[in-house]
Amino acid sequence: MPLHTVRVFVTLKPSVFDPQGRTIVESLHSLGYGNVADVRQGKYFEVQVEAANAEDADALVRDVSSTLLANPVIEGFRLERAEPAGRR
């Protein structure tokens, strides 16, 4: 089966305060970047899976993301399909 790369972006739910993002904003302000209104820190994963097609790859990575990569209590995630290998 062909190898598919799926990108996963995990972010804190809007309702969850992000102390690290807040600290980054404060640091940027002290560096003079007063126009930076907010920063939210998240996580980025590149997941390679063997799947018959892109839809199956997405479904598998969605499953992986909700099982382990993100904690649904505090986080959400979205997927992005990477270009198939060889077409870059």
Binding site: L12, V16, F17, P19, Q20, R22, T23, N71, V73, I74
Partner: peptide, 17 residues
């Protein structure tokens, strides 16, 4: 225990980082 769902909620980075 929270990650396992045996207790509810989650523990995140301390507010003061």
């Amino acid at each position: 225990l929270c990650e396992a769902g045996l207790l509810e909620g989650a523990l995140i980075r301390n507010q003061q980082v």
